[in-house]
Design a protein around this nucleic acid. Structure first.
Length: 881
RNA sequence: AGGCACGUAGCUCAGUGGGAGAGCACCGCCCUGACACGGCGGGGGUCCGCGGUUCAAAUCCGCGCGUGCCUACCA
């Protein structure tokens, strides 16, 4: 061996060695001035305080595969990494941390708290970045961004102010989703719905005023406490039961209020419940609309913390839960209770805190979505951006077509402060990029900035261009926007993808990415979503610890079939770890046989060398095609099949017959040695996007390899000459070897027992003669011309030609008889099946000619085979007497 | 309620109109000079069910059953 080759690959040593080397040489730093078409990718920024989970690992591995491939393929490639400030999530984490130290975050005040968050960010923010690095991602770390970086804050301010100036952002009092635990507004998307929550449909009566004829009207509700905020009861205008009551007045039993009975065909389904609906405009989205239609008062009965406020009268101060109990008790006490029945319903909860979300009347900032959604919709419809797999386009369409205005203000301290100021001395609202000195309305200096921050996704929407310096016109922005592909999970198509689309189109005049690759969720092997509460979370770093990043990444790629969830199974990682071992062993083989290798010496390619070259070209083509179409699982399985199934199983084995043959001239041997090394080189190039550390380690040891594999040129199929004749010839050889091995296997004849292969057909004999040594070494047979039929022989049919393996003294004839009966049965079955089609006149007349010919050809082959085998059987029987 | 996926070997999954595939698991033989983390060979499947289109269906269409996910204001 020309140099010391360790017995096994050490993934951890290689990982640290190569990540340091690459970082030191700065090989992944993008240069906008360099040549090549741009290929740019921005990372979906993980939460800055988060840690790497399987979703991140999958997401970033797939991006890295594409980025490394394109970089090797001559593109001017940039992959911008970064992290997200993740408003609610991060605030929540720090709040809890402080609470654990006995500190109430509110005591710190806004500035003090924000300072604590920055401290935490400094401490924890590096975690996920370092974990990503361990995964081996080839990000340009010099371009790392954080969504709260100063220049990104500028971008967000620009975004907000510009939309405001264009009338696309407004401030208004609306019913919004309120999280009483975090005490902040949420967008519709941040509310998750628990399905089929058991509940009760509880009925009570509102007394009709005496002057209006007295009596009562019964309503049903799942939230009795909201009756404190009722300002009407609605019935269907056509409902005969209630028609006469429309316009009558009801007396509220607990608060000094009279409420009307109104007719509303939109809200009321006469079939449901009693057909009469209590209306609480300030605490229910439907009722809010009813309130607007009928100009009803909107009475807010809740405090921000979810307790009842002064409007609730005697119930003030109670939590929703307690108020519900108390209201029910009181209604029963005054005799208005009218029954209850079980009911299941959906319950909205805060995605983050889990608190039951209350529809809540409040003044917030909103983005007017309709004008922005239109172009974002059109861009996908007209193909400017395509989703892979395509089915996700429907999801995207559905949401944008039915979009509602986006509530972007959050009552948090951590995030982008809303660039709006209110004048204390007049009603002026100032929305500005820079802090205004004084009120433009009255000149007062008493300006207060809005206390709230913006929805985190409001800044994420800008990510594909803010990371490149927008709103400044930078060289990066010019060169790398729009980006090439966005790789992300389907769970944030609405949150993020759609919003980047309209922001990109609106501000940059161009979609932010041409492709959106949507990958699946990583689940456990039972198909369950991984979650801490279920305890089925797999930590990617532990997997890397056990098997190395290369095998781990390869597994993720192999699992990433389009449109299917990844059901994690660590056995697969073990399998792909063995794959690296296998390649390592192949490398050892190369070195063990490298003696006398002269890269510049004379070379004469043999058939096996030409064969593996042609096969390599075919593999390159398939792997490139799979990469180009994001068929990641095929990239992995095609590579695996080629390396193991063709290079190791066949080429290396066949090469031995050349290398170990003293008759073969040196030039042929030199060509084999060269082909071994050069094919190893191609293999690690093909595998590099998936297994960066391993391939760099192998590459570094290959004689003649220059530089780093990560900077080498991705293989091109055209560089590998196709050679149909050799392909056919070797295929015949493989068929012969396989056939003989099967006979040996089935008849339990060990390889070390030599056998003779008798071939009568001249053409086949000539062909096989060229491979006599390969036959000897791989099938344990010596080749002879068939002159006289031996007494009792096994029959191998190779490309339609009968070949005999004399069994005299090797095996019991009974064995061969049993084997023959089996293969004869198979041949008969084949013929019956093929005949079924050929004897069908409609098949012969209607199917394309080439298909008919193909079937006929197969039938002929099977027929010959059957006849040969039957004849052999007869002879065996005769030989046995 | 609507929408979208999915249902193929024991397990995890490829396979979108021409005789059912891979990996793992299983069985048999083999420690042959890269590799036993290996080699060679083998068994195993009403392609969820029913109907239809077609010369031909795992593949296209319809209905049904099952599973998962997304969206939705039924009080």
């Amino acid at each position: 061996m020309p140099e010391e080759l360790p017995a096994a690959y050490d993934p951890h040593a290689a990982a640290s060695k190569w990540s340091e080397a690459w970082a030191e040489a700065d090989v992944y730093r993008a240069d906008p001035g360099a040549e090549g078409p741009a290929y740019s990718v921005v990372i979906p920024p993980p939460n800055v305080t988060g840690s790497l989970h399987m979703g991140h690992a999958l997401n970033n591995t797939l991006q890295d595969v594409m980025v490394r491939y394109k970089r090797m393929d001559g593109f001017n490639t940039v992959w911008v990494p970064g992290t997200d400030h993740a408003g609610i999530a991060t605030q929540w984490v720090v709040r809890r941390k402080l609470a654990a130290q006995g500190i109430d975050y509110r005591d710190l005040g806004r500035d003090g708290f924000v300072e604590k968050v920055w401290e935490w960010k400094a401490e924890a923010g590096g975690t996920i970045v370092n974990q990503l690095k361990r995964l081996g991602v080839s990000c340009d770390w010099s371009r790392e961004r954080f969504t709260l970086d100063e220049d990104l804050q500028k971008a967000v301010a620009e975004h907000f102010v510009a939309l405001y100036e264009q009338g696309l952002i407004y401030r208004g009092q609306r019913l919004i989703n309120w999280d009483p635990m975090d005490q902040t507004a949420l967008s519709d998307l941040e509310v998750e719905h628990d399905e089929n929550v058991p509940s009760e449909l509880w009925s009570f009566a509102y007394p009709i005023k005496e002057e209006d004829g007295g009596g009562e009207i019964v309503v049903a509700t799942t939230r009795p406490e909201t009756m404190l905020g009722d300002t009407a009861v609605a019935v269907h205008p056509d409902d005969a039961r209630y028609k006469h009551l429309i316009g009558k007045t009801l007396t509220h039993p607990f608060v000094a209020r009279e409420i009307p009975i109104v007719a509303d065909a939109i809200l009321v389904d006469p079939e449901f419940g009693t057909g009469a609906v209590k209306v609480t405009p300030a605490h229910d989205f439907n009722d809010f609309d009813v309130g607007k239609r009928h100009d009803l008062p909107m009475i807010n009965i809740l405090n921000p913390d979810g307790t009842m406020n002064g409007q609730a009268g005697e119930f003030e101060g109670l939590s929703v839960k307690d108020a519900r109990k108390a209201v029910k008790a009181k209604i029963e006490e005054v005799g208005l209770f009218r029954g209850s029945k079980a009911h299941t319903m959906n319950l909205g909860r805060s995605q983050r805190s889990g608190a039951v979300v209350e529809p809540y009347l409040s003044t917030q900032w909103f983005v007017r979505m309709k004008p922005l959604a239109g172009p974002a919709l059109a861009a996908v419809e007209n193909g400017s951006t395509r989703f892979v797999p395509k089915q996700w386009e429907n999801t995207y369409y559905a949401w944008l077509r039915d979009i509602r205005d986006w509530c972007i203000s959050r009552q948090l301290w951590w995030g982008h402060r809303i660039p709006a100021w209110y004048c204390d001395d007049c009603d002026e609202v100032v929305v500005a990029r820079e802090t205004p000195e004084c009120c433009p309305g009255c000149g007062s200096a008493n300006l207060r900035q809005d206390e709230d921050v913006l929805d985190t996704w409001f800044s994420s929407a800008l990510w594909p261009f803010s990371v490149f310096g927008w709103p400044e016109k930078t060289e990066d922005l010019e060169r790398y926007y729009p980006t090439s592909v966005l790789v992300t999970g389907f769970d944030i198509i609405f949150f993020w993808v759609a919003r980047m689309m309209f922001a990109g189109i609106h501000f940059m005049g161009h979609v932010p990415f041409s492709d959106v690759y949507i990958h699946a969720l990583v689940r456990d092997s039972q198909g369950q979503k991984m979650s801490k509460t279920k305890g089925n979370v797999v930590d990617p770093l532990e997997v890397i610890e056990r098997w190395g990043a290369d095998a781990f990444r390869f597994t993720l790629v192999a699992f990433a079939a389009q449109g299917r969830d990844v059901l994690w199974d660590e056995k697969r990682v073990e399998g792909y770890h063995r794959f690296t071992t296998k390649i390592w062993q192949a490398l050892r083989f190369c070195f063990l046989n490298a003696e006398g290798y002269d890269p510049s010496g004379p070379m004469e390619l043999g058939p096996y060398d030409r064969w593996i070259q042609a096969r390599t070209g075919a593999a390159v083509e398939r792997i490139r095609a799979a990469l180009d179409e994001y068929r990641f699982n095929e990239v992995a399985t095609e590579s695996y099949a080629f390396v193991w199934g063709e290079f190791c199983d066949w080429y290396i084995e066949l090469s031995k017959s050349t290398l170990y043959d003293p008759e073969v001239p040196e030039a042929r041997k030199n060509a084999v040695k060269h082909t071994l090394f050069s094919t190893m080189g191609t293999i690690v190039q093909l595998l590099h996007p998936m297994m960066p550390f391993f391939t760099e380690e192998v590459w570094s040891r290959l004689p003649g390899s220059e530089g780093w594999v990560t900077q080498s040129r991705f293989p091109v199929a055209a560089d590998f000459p196709s050679d149909p004749e050799t392909l056919t010839e070797v295929a015949v050889l493989q068929a012969a070897i396989t056939e003989i091995r099967r006979i040996r296997g089935e008849m339990q004849i060990a390889m070390r027992k030599p056998m003779r292969l008798l071939v009568g057909d001249d053409h086949l004999l000539e062909l096989l003669k060229n491979h006599a040594r390969a036959l000897k070494e791989n099938a344990g047979v010596s080749l002879e011309r068939l002159t006289e039929r031996p007494n009792g022989a096994a029959t191998a049919v190779v490309s339609g030609v009968e070949c005999l393996l004399p069994l005299q003294g090797v095996v019991d004839f009974e064995e061969e008889l049993r084997r023959l009966d089996k293969v004869i049965a198979k041949a008969e079955k084949d013929i019956i099946q093929l005949d079924k089609r050929l004897k069908n006149p409609r098949f012969v007349s209607k199917a394309p000619q080439h298909v008919v010919d193909e079937v006929q050809g197969k039938r002929d082959v099977a027929q010959t085979r059957l006849e040969t085998l039957t004849a052999s059987r007869t002879r065996i029987v005769e030989a046995m007497g």
